[in-house]
Every structure is written in structure tokens, then in C-alpha cells.
Design a binder for these strands. Structure first.
Lengths: 352, 352
DNA sequence: TTGTATGCGTTATCAT
DNA sequence: ATGATAACGCATACAA
């Protein structure tokens, strides 16, 4: 019998700090110090004994108990509007990696597009003492996610601003990106433009892109004409009508017409409508879409897209938050990352 | 001054059970009982006082402290091989929903395709006292995820078996699905088949589909011929060669050739190769692919696919686990869910 | 029916 | 340098 076992552990249980202390013949405090203040105040010989006991029992501290005791959990709450959205997933990936590299674990809460659950998500995560939040939420109901609701914890917003919320913000440079897209189309000789977006509903990204589109068109008037169409979920008829109208206008003005899709979801709808109409990208209509899904090269002559640096956005978001967790104070910051235009067949004129 | 405050809370802090007790003028135990054993042992008047105090302070119990005290966390650990994989995400979605409905929260750990991190993931999650695991891992290194590593907690496997592991298993009925696919192709007059899969490497799902493919072909020999090709990540040349060879064989045997893709990743590769070769689905080659991505209708004449009931798979997995958490004992179970064939243009012969 | 005391696994504040 | 001991927020056996 080495050291008397306090209680014969039911085998399957995790070893606790008390077990280690008993096995090493020291106090719990000493074991705790081994992890937290090793060099400063621990004699080599006793450190060795503790280390041996730890190895023998396969002990590792319980993050839960640590969180309770310290008031910090090394947990980051990540709330995502819709896990089905590839954009969100791509961002999530970058963010999670950055968090893990910094020693944080991510707790994910998926809203499943039910905006009413924002509050529930925040409360649930706060219950687990997350140290901070990364928010990629719907962003409609304004103050729902207000600072108070965050329980005094820092947060970073991704892709969607919330009015009057003091928090860092990371996103694509929407204005710059839209400018790139427009210039590219204009250079290619497409002078009758239609920007198709999901219903704006106050979503910041959608509003910014729409505004930038108007700016670009205005800057090149009157040779260039531009219009905006809001595409609703099930309304295929409306979308097809808009496409037909665009084509008509272009013919009358002896212009080439092109569509800009506000995100991958819209791109999908437009592609479906084109199939329905029997039209081809680069022939009846030019096309550029925001987001660069893996299937973009495979639709017709290939879809020209504006790729977002999703991984970087995620990393930047995590980075901002972690800096705050390390004590950085100061006004809310803004990180706007540039997009990259990926040119494929849909934006160059194909003989008909 | 209603009731004397024990300590003037720094405002931003969460209310604790002690605060509620003080405000209601009762003991902490009574407050605890209000949540856990309300009806059984609590007088109405005092319950009312507690309830009022709770409402006033906006109190809710700390799940962390509860977990520490109870030894159960109402947390479920979900380990996913690659969050980038849409199949995994779709399953995750169903599982998360089912868990939340049952009052469990999901902690997500993404392996990012690094199989070496399985152990790390399990340990990290176990540290947070997760009550059980849902595993959708790589499944290569056999025993890495053995029962011991699970810290004695129940687990359910999704889509990938682990040899010799006592755990419930949920997946597509691979044999049945492959049979459906083959029958459909055969009925359509495609008699020279090629099954293209990612390198099998001992992954159970891939092996099962391949075996089922061989069975189907054998059952219809000699009128039908079938071959298998393993497509490596970057090897586009090899894939194109395989496609050409298939086409050749079919011509010689005066048959129509069709490809079956083992999953969406392979489908993407095949579609890219077809574009490269200047071939068209339903003309030079018939096609059916496992998994039904949203872009399947938009490639050429539309891709015929075998859609997996991903949402159900996720729900079933969560359901199995939760039953175990409620105490269900007994041998490991197996839930094989049927796929659904979605017929589109790629599997019907288009005049050339 | 309600209150008291103890434990859950840590960290931190004291002593020593 | 090390060891008691009191939090942390909650549940529960035991007393009353």
C-alpha cells in the first residue's frame, strides 16, 4: 500500500486534485501550484513527486471546476444564424481554429434562422460562463442583442452590425467589393445592370452592398443603367419576370445586360431561373455573384464570383475577441477585409 | 430597502442562489428546491416569495455549478471530422435540434480532418463533463476512440463504424441505397458501370458501398459490367483517364456507360472532369451520385442523386444517445435509414 | 415543510 | 516553499 486511498475510486471516475495530492503525499494547494505557478514557488523534488503522481493517475484539471473557481472558463460562445449557410460555416471554421490555437474552446449555438432565439442562445451560453461571444446573427430585431444582454462580456460582430452596440466588427469590405464587381462588368461591356439581393430588412451587409451598387451606377451614368431587385424565398415567377424585363431594357437600349447576385443563395435562384428560361450565362445575361461556392466553376461556362476571405474573417473575429479578453480596452474597432474577384466565363460575352 | 443585500453586487454580475435566498428571506436549500422538487415539498406561500425574488433578480441557476454538483451537465459532445463537409453539417443540424429539444446543449469539436486530434477532442469534451458523445469521426486509426477513451460515457457513432466499439450506430442503409442506384441505372439501359469512390482506407461507409456495388453487378452478370475507381484528391489526370477508359469499354461492348459517384466531393470532381473532357451528362456518360447537394439540379441536365435523410440521421443519433442517458441498457443497436433516389436528367439518355 | 451542513473540483488567501 | 481553509454556485442528506 503506497499511500492510503481516501476512497476507493469506482475505477471509471476521473482522478481529482485530491487523489493526486494523496498519491504524492502533498496538499491540494501544492498540486494546484504545480499547474499554475510552477517555477516561482515549488521545490524541484516535490514538483517531481507531483508530476509522477499526475502521470500515474492520468490527472488533468477539470475545466468546469476551474471555471467556477476562477470566474473564467476559457470558453467562447459562437452564435450563428444558420449552420446550413456555407458562409457561416466557413467563418466558423476559421474562428474555431483561431480559438483553439489560443487555448479556447468554442461552444456553438445555432439559431436555425429563428431570430427569436437570440436571447435564449446568449443566456444559455452565458450560463456556461463563456468569456466572450462571436456573433453572426440575423441582425434584424435591433436591440435584442444589446450590451446588457451580453452579461457584461465582450463580443465581436461578424458580417452583421447591430445598431448602437459597442462591439468590434469584422466583415467583408462590401463597398470595395461591389466596386470591383461593377468595374469588372463595366470593363467587359455590360452596361445594363441588375443587382439581385435577398430582402434587405435592415440587414447591414445587404444595405451596404445595395448602396455601393447605386454609387457605382451613379458614377458612370448615363451610359450605365442599374436597377435593384429583391428576391423572396419562393417567388420564382417574380425573379424570372425581373430577368426578362432586364433583358428587354437592354435590347431597347442596345446594351448588354448583366446580373449581380448578392450572395450564394441568390446565385442559386438565378441559376435555376436561367435554366427555366433556357438562357445561358455569358449569352443572354452576364453574371457575377457574391460568394464563391465550390460549384461555381461547374455552372454553364463557369460563374464569375467575388470570393470572401471567410477563413480570415473568422480568424480576425476570434483575434479581436481574444485581444479584448486579454484586457484590451478602447473604442469598438472595425476590420473590413478585401474580397477577391474570381473571373470565369459568365462575365465574358459568348457568341450566341 | 426591501431586504438587506448581503453584498452589493457589482451590478453586472449574475444573481446567485444566495442572492435569491436573501431576497426571499429563505435558505439556499429552499430556493434550490423551488427548481428541483417544487410541488412535492414546498408550501405555496413560500414558493410564491421565492418565485418573486427570482423574477426580481432575473435569476437562473448556473449550469456549470449544477454540473459540478450533480455530476451531470446536460451537455452533449459532438465530434465532427470536418465541419466543411456539408453532409456532416446536415447531420449536425438534425442532431443539435433534437438535443436542444430534449434540453441538452451541444458542444462542438471540429477535427478539421486531422485524425490525430480525436483523442484531444474527447478529452477536452470530457473535461466539460459532457454526458455523452455523438461521433462522426474519420474512423481510420482503429482503436483510437475506444471505450476507455470515452471515460465511461455513452456514445453513438454516425456514418462510420469503429471496429470492436460498443456503441449505437446510425447511418444510411448503404447496401439498400446502392441497390436502388444500380437498379435505376440498369432500368435506364446503362450496362457498363463505374463506381468512383474516395480511397477506401478502411472507412466503413466506403467499403459497404463498394461491396454492395459489386453485389449488384454480380447479380446481373454477364449483361452488366462494373468496375471501381478510387479517386485521389489532386489526381484529375487519373480520373479523366478512368472516364475515357470507361467510355472506350462501353463502345467496344456496345453498351451505354454510366458513373456512380460515392459522395458529393467525388461528384464535384467528376463534374469538373466532364467539363474538361467536353462531355455531357446523359450523353457520353450517365450519372448518379450519392448525396444531393443544392446545386445538383443546375449541373448540365440536372444530376440524378441518392439523397440521404441527413436530418433524420442526426435526430436518430441524438435520440439513441438520449435514450442511453436516460438509462437504457442493452447491446449496441443499429439504425439504418433508407435513402431516396432523386431522378434528374443525368441518368436518362439524351440524344447526341 | 424548512434550515443546516457538507460535498462537487478548483483556486486563492492566509498562515507556517 | 508548503499546508490549512475558505470561497465559487449549486444540490442534497440530515436535522429540526
Amino acid at each position: 500500500m503506497s499511500t492510503r486511498a481516501p476512497r476507493p475510486k469506482p475505477a471509471g471516475q476521473r482522478a481529482t486534485i485530491a487523489d493526486v495530492a494523496a498519491a504524492a503525499g502533498v496538499s491540494k494547494a501544492t498540486v494546484s501550484r504545480f499547474f499554475n505557478h510552477r517555477e516561482r514557488l515549488l521545490s524541484p523534488d516535490i514538483a517531481a513527486r507531483v508530476e509522477a503522481a499526475i502521470a500515474m493517475l492520468g490527472y488533468s484539471p477539470s475545466p468546469m471546476a476551474q471555471a467556477l473557481s476562477r470566474g473564467k472558463s476559457r470558453l467562447i460562445g459562437l452564435i450563428v444564424a444558420d449552420i446550413t449557410n456555407p458562409y457561416s460555416v466557413a467563418v466558423l471554421r476559421g474562428a474555431e481554429k483561431a480559438c483553439q490555437d489560443a487555448g479556447y474552446l468554442v461552444m456553438l449555438f445555432n439559431l436555425g434562422n429563428e431570430s427569436g432565439r437570440e436571447r435564449e442562445a446568449i443566456d444559455a451560453l452565458a450560463g456556461y460562463q463563456v468569456d466572450g461571444f462571436i456573433l453572426n446573427t440575423l441582425g434584424r430585431g435591433a436591440g435584442v442583442v444589446d450590451a446588457v444582454a451580453l452579461h457584461g462580456k465582450p463580443a465581436v460582430l461578424v458580417d452583421r452590425r447591430h445598431a448602437g452596440m459597442h462591439a468590434d466588427f469584422v466583415s467583408l469590405d462590401n463597398a470595395g467589393a461591389m466596386a470591383q464587381v461593377c468595374e469588372h462588368l463595366l470593363d467587359g461591356g455590360w452596361h445594363e445592370l441588375l443587382y439581385i439581393t435577398e430582402p434587405q430588412k435592415g440587414v447591414s451587409t445587404r444595405r451596404e452592398r445595395t448602396a455601393a451598387f447605386h454609387d457605382c451606377v451613379a458614377a458612370h451614368a448615363p451610359q450605365v443603367k442599374g436597377d435593384v431587385f429583391e428576391s423572396e424565398e419562393g417567388d420564382t415567377a417574380g425573379l424570372e419576370a425581373a430577368l426578362r424585363a432586364l433583358h428587354q431594357r437592354a435590347r431597347r437600349g442596345r446594351r448588354q445586360a448583366a446580373v449581380i447576385a448578392g450572395n450564394a443563395v441568390v446565385t442559386l435562384r438565378v441559376a435555376a431561373a436561367m435554366t427555366q428560361l433556357g438562357w445561358h450565362f455569358g449569352r443572354e445575361l452576364g453574371f457575377v455573384g457574391f460568394d464563391d461556392p465550390e460549384w461555381a466553376p461547374l455552372i454553364g461556362p463557369g460563374l464569375t464570383t467575388l470570393a470572401q476571405p471567410t477563413d480570415e474573417i473568422g480568424r480576425a473575429a476570434a483575434g479581436c475577441l481574444i485581444e479584448r479578453l486579454r484586457g484590451l480596452e478602447g473604442a469598438a474597432r472595425q476590420r473590413l477585409l478585401p474580397g477577391e474577384l474570381v473571373v470565369r466565363g459568365s462575365s465574358s460575352l459568348h457568341a450566341t
